[in-house]
Structures are given as structure tokens and as C-alpha cells.
Computed example of a mutant assay.
Amino acid sequence: MIKALFTSATGMTAQTTSIDNTANNIANVNTNGFKRGQVDFQDLIYVDLRPAGSTAAQGLTVPTGLQLGSGVRVADVTKIFTEGTLVNTQNPLDVAVEGDGFFQVTLPSGELRYTRDGGLKLNAQGNLVTSDGFLITPQISIPTSAVSIGIGSDGTVSVQNAGALNATTTLGQLTLARFQNPAGLSAQGRNLFAETASSGAPLLATPGQNGIGLTRQGFQERSNVDVVAELINLILAQRAYEFNTRAVRTADNMLASTTDLVR
């Protein structure tokens, strides 16, 4: 059997994964805080038909070897954590992270998750929560008497209360987390990431300290997906897939020609 059939099949499988990743990137082009995925490929094992440096004659060695590869596979899909565009929404509960860092989110189970989506909301108790109602950690509650909310670049949350508009009351401070290897985080959906052994433990700090970025009130971070680049990747993956199918057809035609010889 011609090896090209199996080699081309690995290329088709790999390009299918690449297209799936590109489709996910494009689908999330307007998702707040979304980080695009990048597919990395890796060649498969090689068959040594003639090792480099083997003896050709007495005192002579061949300068190059004869190796045939077995194709390609997807090594990983890496999340690229470059900062997305900050858009001014004029919503006092929208908070973007300018620089490195994640908001901490507590699930109903008590587990911690991390997000770049700063589209915060208030629940019935006045607590700052995500769009899914998950509490922001550390927990900050806004009193019902508050008429305006201020969030400083250092994460300080303060309000002005009705009847005391000339006075500002500090309620708490947002704490951000950063990771030694953010690409090692596990994407959980709902704009959330989970800590893994590869990401390392979170390093907590107030915004603006220890490499943590600043918080910007009234801004939202959009996704870092470049639609033009994704469309180019889509075209490249499609063409690569077509070239692999052409290699399959060529190998099939060669087998057909061989079969005709013995008729």
C-alpha cells in the first residue's frame, strides 16, 4: 500500500482541527475578554531507510540520510493572551483590565475561576457578579443608598450615597490574579478559565502592583481576534486540505495504474 494515503490522511485530520479552531475564533470575535487559539503542528515519526552517516564504501559515509515522514499531528492549541481593544461603554459597572491580570470569580460550589470579562452586574443583594451571577472575589456589596459608583485604576471601589453627595465611601478593592503561564489555563466556557498544574498557582495583587495591570472603569475589553488574519488562516487550511486530498487521489491513481498492469 502506498504510504502517501496514510500520510495525507493525517494532514487532512490536522487541517480539519485547524479549521475548527479558526471557526471558534471567528465565532467569538465579539466575545468580551476572549483570547484566540493558535494551532501548533508537529511532524510524526520518521522511517529511516538509510541513516545519515552510514557506510557507503570502505572509508566512505553517505552525507545525507533517506528518511520518510509519517505525516503531521496537532501538537496543541495555545491561547494567545495579548490584550484586546478597550471600548468605552460609559457603563460604571464595566471594568477592563489594562495589562496582565484576571478577575477572580467564585462558583456556587466554592471553586475559583478567572476571567478577563469585566462586564460586572449587581445581584439582588447588591453584590458585584458576572453575567451568570457568579460572585466577584473579594466580595464587594453596593448599598441601596448609592447614587454613583466609582472604581479607581487601583481597583478601589467607592460610592456616593444619597443625602451625602459630597462624601465618598470606600467599600473595598478589587484584587486581580496573574499566572506564570497563562497559556496553561483551562478554558471552561462562560468566559472563565481554571487553574491547572501547567498554569501555576495564581499570584494575587492589587491592580498596578507586582506586574498586575490597571483597572479601567467604563471600558470593556473585546476579543483579541484579528478577523483578517483568521480569514487568511482559513484559506491556508482549506488549501492545505485540498492539497492533501489531491495527494490521496494521486496515490489512488498510481494504485489503479499498477492494478491495470497485471490484468
Rank of each mutant, 00 (worst) to 15 (best):
A9D: 02
M12N: 11
N25Y: 08
A27K: 00
N30E: 09
N32P: 10
F34P: 07
K35L: 15
V39H: 12
Q42V: 13
D48Y: 12
Q58N: 11
G65M: 05
Q67H: 09
R73I: 06
D76H: 07
K79L: 13
I80Q: 14
T82P: 00
E83G: 13
T85Y: 03
T89I: 10
Q90S: 14
G99Q: 08
D100W: 00
V105K: 04
T106L: 11
P108L: 14
G110K: 06
L112I: 01
L112G: 01
R116S: 12
D117P: 08
G119D: 04
L122P: 12
L122T: 12
N123L: 10
G126E: 10
I136P: 00
I136F: 00
Q139F: 01
I140A: 03
I140S: 03
T144M: 04
I151L: 05
G152M: 03
G155M: 03
N161E: 10
L171F: 04
Q173F: 04
L176E: 03
A177E: 10
P182W: 09
S186W: 00
S186Y: 05
R190H: 14
F193K: 03
T196G: 02
T196M: 03
A197C: 01
S199I: 05
S199H: 08
G208E: 11
G208S: 13
Q209H: 12
I212S: 08
G218A: 10
S223M: 07
V225G: 11
D226G: 01
V228I: 10
L234V: 01
Q238E: 06
R239T: 12
E242R: 09
R249W: 06
T250C: 07
N253F: 02
S257Y: 02
S257P: 01
T258Y: 07
L261D: 08
